[in-house]
Design a protein around this nucleic acid. Structure first.
Lengths: 134, 134
DNA sequence: TATGGGACCTGTAGTTGGTACAGGTTCAAG
DNA sequence: CTTGAACCTGTACCAACTACAGGTCCCATA
């Protein structure tokens, strides 16, 4: 399988696959005489793993760690569980932050019922020093 | 006021203030003979506006637009309201995505009650092609 | 008035996670 | 044997900053 089909099967951009190789989270695959990359099932699996982890919001650094655990196959289920829980916490905090943001934005807008007067409560709110978030 | 005090009063990094000047969303301030930047109340206000908008998740491009509306002071309340509502929608979508993420992560972890066996349901889940998000 | 050191200056490079070319080569179908 | 799609490398770019290095300025204190 060349890079094109791999790209199609994983939904991962060709440039991105080459980027993953460059930064070392995908292995350098064998090549044809002419220099084209040839991938096999194992590459497909690994790239799927990476994409899936990224979809779930793991950073490439976290993915790297997960892959090290997998590669070493001396990982403990516990290590992986811990990483995942930590990450779940991050996501949870992010949700909370965004909810605050949303509330503030909606509040600002709800102050606004005038049509086209150049005296806008949203703008006023943005000029407030008081941090509503945090 | 020099850049240090401005930084302290806004909570905005000195390097960031200079960056904002470079990209043109903060105006070039007057200087002392020796070349130190001197800021006044108006700069403090503007920077506060920028930081507050950024805190609320507006991109610098959106901030630029908001500032254009403010500067021109021919903006209509409606334009600002629209921008803010659009942005609130973005935030809303982001929250939904993160919630899905969180659910998948928690589900993965809940499969995991073994101690240190190198056969981990989380890893298995990450190897699944099936996209649970999307 | 000299001086020490903290605050400031410019310019460049690095970060994350990719994307977007340009300009050239290879592969495979017809 | 030709043609054009797919591939190659290398570099530059995106947001939104941050982090130096290496030099200058300012002002409080002795």
């Amino acid at each position: 399988m060349t890079i094109g089909p791999l790209s199609k099967q994983t939904g991962c951009n060709i440039e991105t696959i080459r980027y993953y190789e460059r930064i070392g989270i995908m292995p350098k695959p064998p090549r044809t005489e002419g220099g084209h990359r040839i991938y096999r099932e194992e590459h497909l699996k690994r790239l799927t793993f990476i994409r899936r982890s990224r979809e779930l919001g793991f950073t490439l650094d976290q993915v790297r760690n997960l892959l090290m655990l997998v590669d070493g196959d001396d990982f403990t289920c516990d290590e992986v569980k811990t990483m995942t829980l930590d990450h779940a916490d991050d996501v949870h905090r992010k949700i909370a932050d965004l909810k605050k943001m949303e509330r503030v934005l909606k509040d600002m807008v709800s102050q606004c019922n005038r049509g086209d007067v150049p005296d806008c409560p949203v703008i006023d709110a943005l000029f407030q020093t008081r941090a509503c978030l945090s």
